[in-house]
Simulated assay, not measured.
Amino acid sequence: MLTRTRTQEVAAFDDSVVSRAAAGFTARRRSRQWTAFAFLAPLVVYLAVFYAYPLYRNIDLSVHDYTPRAFVRGDPEFTGLDNYLDVVSDDTFLAALRNTALFTLGSIAVQYALGLALAVFFHRNFRLSVVLRAMFLVPWLLPLIVSASTWSWMLNSDNGIVNTVLQAFGIGQINWLTSPDTSLLSVTVANIWLGIPFNLVILYAGLQNIPADLYEAAGLDGANAWQRFWRITFPLLRPVSAITLLLGLIYTLKVVDIIWIMTKGGPADASTTLAIWSYREAFGTGQPDFSPAAAVGNLLILIAFTAGLVHVRLQRKEET
């Protein structure tokens, strides 16, 4: 009987130890979960306030008829997809879509090519490399209004420095900003100049992660500079190139300030992109029409979102 009682006491003690250990483990687990939630909360709040809510408001704007009076009274009429249908059927839509494609693809292609060339050039670490690299960052550091105003002055038809130089070589006056044939090209060139430093910085950082041993081994095997670039640099830089092009695409799709300051989307919508069209509908005419502007903005968001999905899919395909 005494032995049985002793056995029961030991079993009860073991059960108590196990229970306390389990309770302690549960408490520590809950503590870690609360700690994780505490670290995650600022990000969730940030995304909700600055992304989810604005997106919700933009969608709400696009499916109602928000006039200035409706904003004040808070009773906009629900229109469903009518604003989207009006935007797509508008004569400006196809022109803006074409200009957006030309402006965006032309900008990111030339920005990437020149940025990559400069990154490879500066990767040699020659004398004054740091100084010259810093000078190439100047366009990135200047306020956009300063850059756009400078390009407007340079491309001015009457007294711009570009036409002055061309006339010195016997070339007649070119109406860079006021001709439908050259206005889109002009704003694209200005945007390329602004975007080169970003591509240079990102691609140069990617080049730093490529082992120098690979270049030394290729040199010993007799590979020339082009072969080393095509067989080593370009393939190993592919992930960095993909994210650089994606970010460039997203940024260029929403460019407004450069085009608005230089041409305001004209003449005759020759340089009107979807972003400019959206801004002009909302703020540029003196008679705000917020709902169509929101619908155009949502189309831009959809294009950028689709590009992001394509990027993620390609990345997963490469990883597998």
Rank of each mutant, 00 (worst) to 15 (best):
S31P: 06
L314N: 13
Q227V: 10
F93Y: 04
N99H: 01
A212E: 14
P54K: 02
T244H: 03
A12M: 09
L128R: 08
N224I: 07
R4P: 10
N163Y: 03
F290R: 01
L166N: 08
V138T: 07
D82H: 04
A48K: 00
F169R: 00
G266F: 10
W151M: 04
Y251M: 13
E77Y: 01
T5G: 04
R231C: 14
I192W: 05
A304H: 06
I174V: 15
R98W: 11
S31G: 12
T285R: 02
F71S: 05
L247R: 00
A27L: 13
G115E: 07
I59K: 00
Q287I: 15
P239Y: 06
A168F: 12
W153D: 13
A225T: 15
E281L: 14
V87A: 03
G172A: 08
Y112S: 09
F136W: 14
Y215S: 11
D221S: 03
L85K: 05
A190Y: 03
M262D: 10
I174T: 14
S278A: 15
F121D: 06
P76I: 13
V138E: 08
T7N: 11
F103W: 04
F78G: 09
L203E: 12
A212N: 11
R29C: 09
Q167Y: 07
L184N: 01
A22N: 08
S62Q: 01
N175L: 12
W153R: 06
L142A: 12
A52P: 09
W260H: 04
L236Q: 13
A190F: 08
L214P: 12
A148F: 05
A295D: 10
L249K: 00
A242S: 15
A22E: 15
S89M: 06
P68H: 06
R127Q: 12
T273S: 11
L247K: 00
L184P: 08
L302A: 15
N99M: 02
N156C: 04
R127S: 14
I210N: 01
L114I: 15
V310S: 05
R127P: 12
L114S: 05
L185E: 04
V240Q: 12
F93T: 03
I303D: 10
F103A: 03
F93K: 02
D181H: 02
G24D: 12
D181I: 00
D213T: 04
V138M: 07
W230D: 14
A21I: 13
I250N: 08
L177W: 09
L43Y: 08
G248M: 11
S183M: 05
T104A: 04
T5A: 10
Y204G: 09
L302R: 04
I161T: 13
D60W: 04
V240G: 08
I243C: 06
A217F: 06
S271T: 11
W260N: 10
T182V: 02
F25A: 15
A38N: 08
R238S: 14
L55W: 02
P180F: 02
I210W: 00
L300G: 05
D65T: 09
D221C: 01
D213R: 01
R69L: 15
L55E: 10
L220C: 01
P288D: 10
L114M: 12
M262I: 07
R20G: 02
L274E: 14
G170A: 06
S16C: 11
R32M: 15
N209D: 15
A282Q: 13
P139H: 00
V87Q: 01
G80E: 07
S147L: 12
A205R: 01
F229S: 05
S31K: 05
L141T: 08
Y215I: 07
A242L: 14
L81P: 01
